[in-house]
Amino acid sequence: MGKIHEKYLRMDKMPHIWCAGCGNGIIMGAFINAIDRLGYDKDEVAAVSGIGCSGRITGYMDFNTIHTTHGRALAFATGIKLAKPRLKVFVFMGDGDAVAIGGNHLIHACRRNLDMTAVIFNNHIYGMTGGQFSPTTFKNKNATTAPYGTTDPDFDIAQLCIGAGATYVARGTSYHARLLTDLIVKGAEHPGFSIIEVITHCPVNFGRRNNFESPAQMLLWQKEHGVAARKAKTMPLEDMEGKFTIGELYRSTEIPEYLEEYGRVIQAANEEKKQ
């Protein structure tokens, strides 16, 4: 990383609270690399997070940062972006944050297509509260609230966002860190609402209860189960069983960005005023 971390992180806030072996630091590293590549002025970046382990990321990064309430990061971010469109707004959420308590805000943010970039840390578990199953925990996994195995089917976050109308949807992992940087850069450059789902690992509260002996094993699982979207298209469906696609999954430039549309509202209101 060279000196990038010194440029973008609040080094006086280290050490961070994340457990040894956690994937969150990898995602934060990929993110600041993306910002560096994008060349954004730190004063012009707003980073908004929800609650949970992922929510702590905003405290460690040297931008305009706000750690909001559980599930509501997108609502706060919407207000920031609309009120000061010049700012580059990035939103950080966990899986419980984004698709359980904040699910309503997520689908509506996708539908509106306001120019922001959201990064969802999907570690398939509620980590900070000690390992309860989330809407993305796979079936038959162990969690503190599922001592006999989970019964709930899981959400596919990326597909959910495509269905809800997001105009840039990508999936990365904490193993494919360079790819993740690329995806964040492309998401930020995309004029509209961008979602980057990151499959990451929680060794302490997910791995330990589900037969992963080490964080490295969890990273290897990502390597073995993440299939490049382009390659997946050529594969027989049965070979994709239990695997997931990574890379850019969806992009549309046909749907207008929200503030562009709102400009029409302002224009119409002013024409009416003149009459």
């Binding site: 309430t69 509501r72 997108l74 919407t78 207000g79 972006k81 009120a83 000061k84 805000h105 509506h108």
Partner: peptide, 14 residues
């Protein structure tokens, strides 16, 4: 809930 979040966000920008 989102309405309240959005006005707080807007207010952060002044």
């Amino acid at each position: 809930i989102a309405s309240m979040g959005a006005i707080i966000g807007a207010s952060c920008t002044g």
